[in-house]
Design a protein around this nucleic acid. Structure first.
Lengths: 264, 264
DNA sequence: CGCAGGTTTGAGAGGAGTCAAGGGTTGTGG
DNA sequence: CCACAACCCTTGACTCCTCTCAAACCTGCG
């Protein structure tokens, strides 16, 4: 499993360590985890609905989505995962997949055996707690998605999603705050926002015409960070992204930070 | 903390043990947890938004909801918890409340110190894993709510919610499968389903007129279990409710069970 | 070159929201 | 024991946001 990319366990560890206190031993244990690299094509299942898995999937590059669906086959993306995310850490304690995991673009994942994850969790209680905490943060994101889908109109919903993704990409690389590759089609976006693809298209056009964000060719350019934060009623605290210690910010002033949305 | 009700830790333990393997020692540890009983009136916060808590809330009786909101103050109930649920076990690893917890009716809770929960989790790895698993099941319910709110129309949404609550109440008491006290107002239901109270009213009337369920005076009577399961596209597997060992069922044939919704 | 998948735009339909008013229930206090 | 108030439920009429259906138009690739 030699990869040209930096060790994906490294970026995963950094995310864990940003929320939990992990020492050198824990770090070594995470970095030495085994993993089997696999490439998956767009719209291919990584985990089928109902499948029992014995490994979790660490995203190396690309984008994957977790899908639920109603019985008419209408799909709903419940969560998305970008590079550095362990997409289904929860499968360690709930191996029967209640929803499908699918690549939204060509994606490279690292399959990490549950046995190895369970092993490090057992040996290092701090890791066990960190894993639990990651599941809790994932749940907080889910909760925000319930609000997003339930109580915001299409424009606000789209703006909120773009803000969330901007913050998440920036957390992995501070250059990516305002411009990032987000390889989801408008159909995928529709499934994330619980809209139709047609309406997604109109909504993105509106955001573009208003000079807030340009979403084209699977790349997102945030044009007006403060504007889109306001349009999306976005408050990033739920993401639990720690600010970097040296908060010199990214190159642009408009970098996502723990700004408080005017809670009028 | 002497209560006339059966030890609420007992029913919580049973829920934990139905999903995780816990032995006699773990059982004793859970049953001996400390707790401070409190009664809360309707529409009163149990945990305020942003508050840092040092205890989790075990519901003894009543109904509580977790609230998110958009910046216009429109509220969205993200999750509800009934007797026997630990409403915010996740706060043990994420003590800064990202959403408010509020009583939907007069409710009795038991405040359980994080320190005590952390203690038993540290001493008994099986309990630590069980706690993690509970958080994961809560997340699975959240995921289903995303689908419910995002991809189902009002009627289906209402039917699905009633099915979920029927299953959850029945899991605590097998008599409660088809008729249970659900002390939420139509405004609360609206906040759960991301509808307006007016539309909730019309939707419940439709379910009543169709002979599926009667929701009146904060009591739910399921009139046609198979019918409402179909109307709600309901598949209970996400709830991870284990079937009782002696599956003699409840008194009525229409008892909720792991029936598969016709997935046409 | 032609196809498949993705994006864009238009026109009409419909489900849920909004606004408004009235009726029912419960609890409290005179 | 009645009266009132607060809260909740119910219904109607109209509006509007999003969906549906449809048709082009890109664009990358075999």
């Amino acid at each position: 499993m030699s990869l040209s990319l930096p060790n994906p366990f490294q970026s995963w560890f950094e995310k864990l360590a940003s929320r939990s206190t992990l020492g050198g031993q824990e770090r070594e244990a995470i970095l030495r985890l085994p993993g089997h690299a696999t490439q998956v094509q767009s719209n291919r299942d990584i985990v089928h609905l109902g499948e029992r898995v014995d490994h979790a999937s660490l995203v190396v590059s690309g984008l994957i989505g977790r899908f639920g669906q109603n019985s008419e086959g209408q799909r709903q993306i419940i969560a998305v995962h970008i590079g550095g995310d362990m997409a289904d850490l929860h499968s360690v304690v709930a191996p029967d997949a209640a929803s499908a995991l699918q690549a939204l673009s060509v994606t490279t994942i690292l399959k990490v055996p549950h046995s190895a994850l369970r092993e490090v969790a057992r040996r290092y209680p701090a890791i066990a707690e960190a894993f639990w905490r990651e599941s809790v943060v994932d749940a907080a994101v889910l909760a925000e998605w319930v609000v997003n889908v339930g109580r915001r109109d299409a424009r606000t919903r789209a703006a909120h999603l773009l803000c969330e993704m901007a913050c998440r990409y920036e957390a992995t690389d501070s250059d990516l705050g305002l411009s990032f590759d987000f390889p989801a089609t408008q159909v995928h976006l529709a499934d994330m926002m619980a809209l139709t693809a047609v309406h997604v298209n109109r909504t993105l056009k509106a955001l573009r015409d208003d000079g807030l964000a340009n979403v084209r060719k699977r790349t997102v350019h945030i044009l007006d960070w403060n504007g889109i934060v306001a349009a999306g009623e976005f408050d990033p605290t739920y993401l639990q992204i720690a600010k970097p210690a040296n908060d010199n910010g990214s190159r642009l002033e408009a970098r996502p930070r723990s700004l408080q949305v005017g809670s009028t």
